[in-house]
Nucleic acid binder design. Structure first.
Lengths: 115, 115
DNA sequence: TGAATATATTCTGATAAAGGAATATATTAG
DNA sequence: CTAATATATTCCTTTATCAGAATATATTCA
């Protein structure tokens, strides 16, 4: 098998730095494809392709206005990443008092995972 | 150019689900390669390769004990992911706030509708 | 020393990503 | 209808992944 497709989940979609940049820019408000391209100094086709990936994992949504397509961020789709990383938070903050709770969460989480 | 190597940064390293699972298991404490393999039902060479990737981005560290190699988690290396995702936190909590408001409106509206 | 155990590496094959260039598809303007 | 603008898609090449099998490299023990 090859590497998981970028469209398979949010983690893979966000692995690419340029796509993270796009999301960061979109956090300030919806933008057209060309606006994104000039802002990030990227080629238009490249931006369109990145947006297609982000749209497939529902990190962005489109709204057609005239000949433009305005893309906006769906920040809620990032929550799985935040939640996963937050699971380890107590481990780097050095707060060990919540470690038991943390491990309980991990066990519960792992139960639902694929083997 | 091809896709960025999995070893290029933490985001790419963590994009693979099995590597996330390895980190989750290691959160409970250091483990040998074979212990990880049996726990996650993976082949030993696969685990070794995944660990090599995780080690290159400093998500894990090794300690040699006899013929075993005990891998442990370096949770601090996950902080960049947490920090990046946390940047968007206010956006999705705000969205939820608006959703609650919206639902409240719907409820009020429905209350007025039905006699 | 030699066998056994634990882990790492190498090789192959299939898959797919990303960039560039060119082109296709809307949508609006004149 | 035609031109112009905005965006999407296709083709091609390069590169890198992951899985699997086989093999290589420790390290310990008898």
């Amino acid at each position: 098998m090859a590497r998981s497709p970028t469209t398979s989940d949010v983690f893979n979609a966000v692995a690419e730095a340029q796509r993270r940049q796009i999301l960061t820019v979109l956090a300030a408000g919806e933008l057209s494809v060309n606006a994104l391209a000039t802002t990030l100094n990227l080629r238009q086709p490249a931006v369109s392709k990145h947006l297609a990936v982000l749209k497939e994992v529902e990190l962005v949504q489109v709204r057609g206005v005239g000949q433009q397509r305005l893309y906006s961020l769906n920040a809620a789709a990032l929550k799985p990443i935040y939640d996963w990383a937050a699971t380890f938070q107590t481990l780097w903050t050095g707060r060990l008092d919540r470690l038991e709770e943390h491990l309980a969460d991990l066990l519960a989480q792992q139960k639902g995972d694929t083997p």
